[in-house]
Every structure is written in structure tokens, then in C-alpha cells.
Amino acid sequence: MGTILEIKDLNIEFHDHSVPETVVFDFSMQLQEGEIVGIVGESGSGKTMTALAIAGLLSRHDITKKGQIIFKEQDLLICKRSILREFQGKDISMIFQEPMTSLNPVRKIGWQVEESLRLHENLTKEELKKRAIDALREVELPEPEKIYRQYPHQLSGGMRQRVMIASAMICNPKILIADEATTALDVTIQAQIVQLLKRLNSKKNTAILFISHDLSLVRKLCTKVIVMQNGHIVERGNTEDIYQNPQEVYTKQLIAAIPKCEKNFE
């Protein structure tokens, strides 16, 4: 297992107010091939900003980024946009919290799932369709041929999130970033999606960066966990170590906040 992503001293600073505001301080981490790492922390702790920086979506001129994000010997923060776009969707994918709005309302599901293939690989129409239907089947959607021809409004939230995962995974990326990917779903479906991510991870060896509020889900899925507060990393380590034996007060509070009934869940 080698390191595929290395983040060194990432700082993210906003300049759209009179005083610059730093929202992420000296964030460093390494992601190994095929590993699942969780990032937890309260609202506003900078999880999404970190994820967007890795995915290359923080290109606004009023945001300053310092540090390095090394992927395939390229620093994603300073490399050319064309190189970054090569990686986006093909090697690094991301799914968001809102499955209801992440799909284009006027395009068919099939078209949207195919889109990253269309951008990154030269395939014929039939090959595209076959890959898209395979991808839909892989995320355990019933009747993938039918869903291929449907529009987003015809699907439920859980189904849409599966579609999002299918389109994120269709190019077999090295890294999948899931930012609160289960938060908008109900509890049983959350568990199903987590199971699905786990299966995809072991089948395709995709490393997953799983961002969540929900510590019980993180515990089920992740081998390592990073705890963030106000833009700082307060604690990190193997998931079980941290759950059994948290060092920091903040981590203890987070763990204490897990509802007790979660213990008999599953």
C-alpha cells in the first residue's frame, strides 16, 4: 500500500471581508491506497473547505490557499488547470450532501452518469451506455435500464444518492470524497449507503475520505479518523483507539454525544 494523497500544512483563508479569515489551519494528512479515513467535527470546523480544496473546487480569487496537496507528483494547489481537470472525476471524485439538487433536473440519469466517461475516455455510444448501466447496477439500484432513461425527479433521495455514487465511481477513481453524503437520508438508508461504500472500497480499492457528523457511521466505516475543531486538527488516529480511549476533551464530548441506542444498532 502506497500513499496516494499527501496534504501538507494546508491553510485556507477567505478575503471577502475586511479582515482575512482563516478557516483551515495547518491541515496535514496522508491517504493510503484503498484506505477509508473519516473526518469528524462540529459544524463550521472546516471539513467541507478541506474537501473542496482537495477536489480542486476552491478556485475563487478571494480565497488564499497555502501548503501542498500532492497527488501523482503534482501539487493540486498550483498545477495547471488542464492537469487538474484531467484528475477531476477520473482520479478524484466527490459526492455532496444534497442528492436532491446535485443532479441536473433536465438531463436523464443515464446521460449524467456517463458524463465523466464522456469527458475522460473516448467511448462509443453503446460502450457509454453499457458502462453507465453497469455502474448503476453496481450501486445496487433496481432496474438499472429503466433508471437510465428516467429523470432525477422520478427518483427518491436514497436512489439519487446512489446515482451520484455511480457517476462518481464510473471512472474507477483512486479517491472518493464523501462530504456528508448520508446526512440528508434517513437512518436505514444511511446504513445501506455506508455498506455500499464499504463494498465498493474493497472491490475497487478506492480510497475514501468520509466526512460526517455521525460518529457511529464513521466508526462502522473508517479505519482512521481525524477530529477537527475550528479549522484545527485536534486529534487523529485509528478509529477504535480514538473511540476506546479519546485523548482530547473535545473528542470525548463528541463521543459522549452519540445517542446510546446506537450501541444496539445493527
Binding site: A55, G56, L57, L84, R85, E86, F87, Q88, G89, K90, S93, M94, F96, E98, T101, S102, L103, N104, P105, E115, S116, L119, H120, M164, S167
Partner: peptide, 11 residues
């Protein structure tokens, strides 16, 4: 969000 998604896959 779907525009963000399109940017994300390198469109």
C-alpha cells in the same frame, strides 16, 4: 449543485 458537480468531474 449540479454545476458544482460538473466542475468536479472536470467539465
Amino acid at each position: 449543485d449540479y454545476v458544482k458537480q460538473a466542475k468536479l468531474i472536470g467539465a
